[in-house]
Design a binder for these strands. Structure first.
Length: 443
RNA sequence: GUGGAUGUAGCUCAGCUGGUAGAGCGCGGGUUUGUGGUACCCGAUGUCGCGGGUUCAAAACCCGCCAUCCACCCCA
């Protein structure tokens, strides 16, 4: 006999066994439901796109991480890297059929050829909600509120959304005399690491990467340093006055968005954080990331982020269409929750087990199981046969909560013995009473 | 892409300075009659990641490869 094939998954790709898939699916449903309740409609797009659709949208690094290849018709194609660029393509391509503002949600896997790490995979599920067609604080706030409500509906505690604005970054730098784009980007990259390598480390990196002198670098860091909250920004604006119009406008935008989120009762989940940089590729307005505060999983990075991208759709169309969105990385969130022991385990178990005394009653067992299933209860029928003790053993090993025993006596009286495996108590119940009785045991 | 750590039964791991492998959990069977989980008894586990080398002898030492994890980079 030939040796069996190697059973293996690709690096960075994973199987989701029921133990993780069951809670994962419950989360997906909750997210979808929350998106829908916030007025977003479902959209789906192909996993594969033309290479040129995706190339150059994510920056140098991003291009390297695209899965690219040639299809059987010699077309250059790539697996989607996110859900935002496909959305931009859709809005441009179906512009005539869509009514603006267009609100869509999209839950689907994306692929990035990165080096896998804890909480970082090559295939992972993104859950996005975006609004195309409106550039306003209200649209920004609507998207943020939706995202925060999603986290709430998932029961995620200890998450914090760090909000910033792209023009705050550039405005602060220009105020310090850093006006060259490459220098600005180098500075922003460095500042992004403030909480990781400290102020001195950031100064060093700016001197090295942006070729500023130490004094200038220190000034830059000072502009971002002291926690970098909204108050610091407002103070900076007050001092700078009209000499920093871009900065002023960005800060006003942040104020407006924050006020709206506060009115929705979610202010305590958001803080302004000028050190948030994010990909500078297509973002043009607010940017943000959401991190879990528990130190055990803080290093896994952001679980939900996004921002405003008013120029992206225009790349695919003559018309400029502003847009803003949020993106939740479900598999990273799931990995974090799993590590924190916050995933429910009961979902991967079937609560009702129907024992079958002998083959004579098999048909009746199916009938009884059917009564429960019709009532919305999850039930499985024993398939292994054998002694009743064996069947009970299987039931409890599988995590069932209730076992129904069905023998010829029970069939004769149109009843079943219902045993609660938790308490050990058992009761004979007629078939008509069965669904209600079992349901009462499961609550 | 750069640097570091790890790789022994399904899982978590032990195996001291080289003498061809162990534990716990899990798994299978049993403790007779239509009752599981707890207890007791018995049992099977394995190219010691892969390929070379050193040696009388390698799971252990050396080299290469692969995989996983961690940090950097970047990100969800």
């Amino acid at each position: 006999m030939a040796a069996p094939l190697q059973a293996q998954t690709l690096k960075g790709f994973r199987d989701y066994l029921p133990e993780t898939m069951a809670p994962r699916q419950a989360m997906i449903r909750a997210i979808e439901d929350t998106f829908a309740r916030h007025g977003f409609l479902p959209l789906q797009t192909p996993a594969l796109e033309y290479e040129e659709t995706l190339m150059g949208k994510y920056g140098e690094e991003g291009d390297k991480l695209l899965y690219r290849f040639e299809d059987n018709g010699q077309r250059r194609v790539a697996l989607r890297y996110d859900l935002t660029v496909p959305l931009a393509r859709v809005v441009a391509q179906h512009r005539a059929e869509l009514q603006l503002p267009f609100r869509r949600y999209h839950i689907a896997p994306v692929w990035r050829a990165e080096k896998p790490q804890r909480g970082r995979f090559r295939e992972f599920l993104q859950c996005d909600a975006d609004i195309a067609g409106v550039n306003s604080p209200l649209a920004d706030a609507e998207v943020l509120v939706t995202g925060l409500q999603v986290l709430r509906s998932l029961g995620v505690e200890g998450a914090r959304l760090h909000l910033n604005h792209r023009d705050v970054l550039f405005g602060l730098l220009e105020l310090r005399g850093v006006t060259e784009k490459p220098q600005q980007i180098a500075c922003i990259r460095a500042v992004d690491k403030l909480d990781k390598i400290g102020a001195a480390g950031v100064v060093a990196e700016i001197v090295r990467e942006a070729q500023l002198d130490t004094q200038a670098a220190e000034q830059v860091v000072a502009a971002f340093a002291p926690g970098g909250g909204l108050k610091d920004l407002q103070q900076t604006v007050a001092v700078a006055g009209d000499s920093a119009p871009v900065l002023k406008q960005a800060v006003e935008r942040l104020e407006a968005v924050l006020a709206l989120v506060a009115a929705a009762g979610l202010a305590d989940l958001i803080t302004v954080d000028v050190s948030i940089a994010r990909g500078l590729d297509y973002y043009t307005g607010i940017i943000y990331e959401t991190r879990l505060t528990d130190p055990k999983v803080a290093s896994m990075g952001a679980v939900m982020s996004g921002g405003r991208y008013d120029g992206l759709i225009g790349l695919f169309s003559k018309e400029q269409v502003p847009a803003v969105g949020i993106s939740l990385g479900l598999d990273r969130l799931l990995a974090a929750l799993q590590e924190l022991g916050l995933l429910p385990t009961h979902l991967a178990r079937v609560p009702v087990y129907v024992a079958v005394m002998d083959s004579q009653v098999a048909g009746h067992a199916l009938h009884v199981a059917g009564l429960l299933r019709a009532a919305g209860l999850r039930a499985e029928v024993d398939l292994g046969g054998g002694k009743l003790g064996k069947q009970f053993e299987r039931a409890s090993k599988r995590g069932a909560q209730v076992v129904l025993v069905l023998g010829s006596d029970e069939v004769a009286s149109q009843s079943a013995v219902v045993k609660d495996l938790g308490s050990g108590q058992q009761t004979p119940v007629s078939w008509t009473e069965l669904p209600a009785f079992v349901a009462s045991l499961l609550t």
